[in-house]
């Protein structure tokens, strides 16, 4: 099943402002966010907890709308969620009463040709390496396998945009690295425009072509760091280490001696 024809959509974020009303207080979460993400690119957004990363991603997904400014995908304004935009949440959000197979099939529209559905689900089960677990319930799968189900469910619609909100945060280090590699592999095949939100610097560098650094209160984009690493990327190369230090410095400023970060 060739999905090579899938190309991503351009994401345009212009002058986006988002505040939340809590009781009578208003909380400014995102202040004048401007960002353009090239079709088929993969970028990481990194920032401390509470700086508005999830909020920004939810705006792109159409789950919430900005108070000011707008977000467009290929020049079409985002107003509501769409199957063309796949979202992978931190929690896998599987239906606990349904099997792997049914959970993945749930990603497709309800009215979908049965034969085609069978074919697609089988394909994606294979893609994420879950053969043999078709009938297992989420409760019978490990966290990493649950995440694979969620990935397959998100990808089964061939979304042109893929949004990942700290998707591997709850997994152990090995599973996390494993899944990072798999998502990058799938992205290389399908080239959907991918936005990864994370608070893991290594993950941001390993997966993204750009690392967008956000700072909090109010959330703004502080800097964008280009990642230029020889492919396939190695987490232990000198270049990787240099980038890691650069991102650390962005975060903590330059007023601490280098040795402090490189622990």
């Amino acid at each position: 099943m060739g999905n090579n024809d899938i190309s991503g959509k351009r994401i345009n974020i212009s002058h986006v402002r988002k505040e939340f009303q809590i009781e009578k207080e208003s909380l400014l979460v995102l202040k004048d966010i401007n960002l353009e993400i090239e079709p088929g690119d993969i970028v990481s957004i990194i920032g401390g907890s509470g700086c508005g990363k999830s909020t920004l991603l939810r705006l792109i997904a159409g789950l919430d709308s900005p108070n000011e400014g707008e977000i467009a995908l290929d020049n079409t304004k985002v107003t509501k969620p769409s199957l063309d935009v796949g979202v992978l949440f931190q929690e896998s959000r599987l239906l606990p009463w349904e099997s792997t197979w049914k959970n993945i099939a749930f990603g497709l529209p309800e009215k979908f040709d049965k034969e085609k559905k069978n074919e697609l689900v089988a394909h994606y089960i294979k893609l994420v390496g879950l053969e043999g677990f078709e009938r297992a319930l989420p409760g019978q799968l490990s966290g990493g396998m649950q995440k694979r189900v969620a990935i397959a469910r998100t990808l089964i619609n061939n979304p042109h945009v893929l949004l990942l909100d700290e998707p591997f945060g709850a997994l152990d280090a090995f599973t996390r690295m494993n899944l990072q590699e798999e998502v990058v592999r799938i992205w290389k095949e399908q080239r959907m425009t991918t936005v990864l939100v994370t608070h893991d610097i290594d993950e941001a560098i390993f997966m993204g072509n750009k690392v967008i650094i956000m700072s909090a209160k109010p959330g703004i984009i502080k800097d964008v760091i280009k990642v230029e690493l020889p492919e396939p990327r190695s987490r232990v190369s000198v270049e990787f280490e240099e980038l890691r230090m650069k991102v650390y410095k962005e975060f903590f400023g330059d007023d601490r001696p280098m040795e402090d970060y490189a622990i």
Binding site: P81, L83, V87, E91, R93
Partner: peptide
């Protein structure tokens, strides 16, 4: 979270 999933997957 599951209700939101329904929205993301455009379920009626």
């Amino acid at each position: 979270a599951l209700m939101e999933l329904g929205r993301v997957l455009e379920k009626d």
